[in-house]
Design a protein around this nucleic acid. Sequence first.
DNA 1: TTCCTGGATGTAAGCGTTTGCAAGGTTGGT
DNA 2: ACCAACCTTGCAAACGCTTACATCCAGGAA
Lengths: 333, 333
Amino acid sequence: MEDVARLAGVSTATVSRTLRGLPNVSEETRDRVLQAAASLSYVVSPIASRLASGRTHTVGVIVPYASRWFFGQIVAGAESVLREHSLDLLLYNIGDIPARQRFFGALPLRRRVDAVLTVAMQFTDSEITDLLSLGVPIVAVGHKVPGAGCVRIDDVAAASAAVQHLLALGHRRIGMISTFNDQSMFLPVAHARRRAYADTLADAGIPIAEELVMSVPHGLDGGEQAMRRLLTLADPPTAVFAESDELAFGALSALRRTGRHVSVIGFDDHELSALLDLTTVRQRVFEQGVLAAGMLRRAMTAGTWTPEELLMPTTLVLRASTWPVAVRTTEPG
Amino acid sequence: MEDVARLAGVSTATVSRTLRGLPNVSEETRDRVLQAAASLSYVVSPIASRLASGRTHTVGVIVPYASRWFFGQIVAGAESVLREHSLDLLLYNIGDIPARQRFFGALPLRRRVDAVLTVAMQFTDSEITDLLSLGVPIVAVGHKVPGAGCVRIDDVAAASAAVQHLLALGHRRIGMISTFNDQSMFLPVAHARRRAYADTLADAGIPIAEELVMSVPHGLDGGEQAMRRLLTLADPPTAVFAESDELAFGALSALRRTGRHVSVIGFDDHELSALLDLTTVRQRVFEQGVLAAGMLRRAMTAGTWTPEELLMPTTLVLRASTWPVAVRTTEPG
DNA sequence: TTCCTGGATGTAAGCGTTTGCAAGGTTGGT
DNA sequence: ACCAACCTTGCAAACGCTTACATCCAGGAA
């Protein structure tokens, strides 16, 4: 920067002002500085700039499973808006207990980010305290976090719609594939969706059968296990509501291998759900990443910030994986 | 840090040395400093530390499609090893032309990262020059980049094996679904796999039919379009080799909708390929991310660095999407 | 002419570390 | 008892910016 200042015949202060587009620089000087900077192909050191200004221009993004479809979409969505405003995106994947402990033990975000985006993470109270102690705006995608902004869907309503769809098809014995709450992962949506399942059945006057609710780790394998177990029941369900499409995929896989026929409805509208003909509840995932990042960006620039909550719509997408209960008691159509 | 120094009764220099685990600090002093730091719950400012030391402890990761399965796997793999060594991962998603231009126009990596990981990106010569001008170690996953390290598979051999599998099943009219080279995206693997396809057919004495090679954008839609076009041919292929599983999924989708039957082999062994019964060429994607990050980490710590090349094995995974040519001329089994 | 105002620019003090160098203190060999 | 060698520690100068404050200058009002 000194070189640029010398070449333009001004002070480094003026160079700094020019390069950041501050208003109080004369046009003539501005041109001279920009030209000098260009000819030296100079760029400011973001690190020095951060140290001096105290702003990191970085958003920390915390996800439990970076490689899963849902999270990839959110991250990509957030990345697109952050990049556009030249903000850095620092990715933290804390899917297992050790990673989580390391994360909250060291809290590497301290002094490192101006904002935090968390995606479908269930935090303990102390973890939330830790996060809030960072003193930066936080936005959660997928569920509420006290003190943080939030972009999500109405999980209860959406899950309820899914179960109602099965009820409307005449199903009365309806199973649910839900995720573990052991590792306190995924609980936010799991909890809401499970409750919606129970309430909706109760409203329809159907008693809840404990054995029809499976708790498995998230992913294909989990879904497959769950469905296998459901199929071994003396009175297996005629329909199953899966907490996510990936779980539903696993369920479909189990069904195909065993040759059994059970209606399955998923949740998310995964990119491949159409191909697999999975009835599901669609939510716009990428866009949630976009909106969350936008919310953070505004909070960062405004200085002040009151957490907002954004509710995204969902749609029931009907495909061939669900059918009326009567039709396939023996054989699929 | 000053506070810690004061509380421990030493200078900031000693605190710094202690906190970084340098050897020349007496045990007694070390304990005192650590205790002081803990009681003040102090952490060093990474930014100040970076400015002073000149090292960013950050790896820039450049991907074309952050949300696609393959890239998610690589990123997750890399993240796991970087996090373990407390290195930051800065994600750049430059999938479209504008993003790419912005990226190479400003070259935001300058002064910002100690190493670069690129995933399946086809760069122009000038772009490679730009990247090398950063003066940091670079590792490419998926293909060679001159001057950079490399973790990849033998695309030619693997693709050849795929085509040979189809040949062995008796297919003679074999199509290929490949990706665009318009946006100079994906060319590295596209090129190698397409050449392998052509050479393998040629070796078998089969003339290449231009109309059997489709170029489409990557993704499900691309695969679907490609297969639809292939099916409209007067003499459609009996088998198709898709450059990636996602393209193959699209192809399967088109087949299902049109009720036609064509053998399809994919590439990657996507997480859902088993469910869709797709014959494919398996490669260990996550692990490639791990290895690439490890390579970079070593390069960063060593100071010196000569690009290495790592070749990962691939396996042909036989499933139900490919069958002998004679069997299904009329109806699937 | 004088004073005031406001915009453009320069000066220099941070920002919170790292690190080369020097100083002081120990230890052990002679 | 003396000196070399080594280990521990402190001092202070970077690192490359930002920014509060001071300065200067031109133009307008009185």
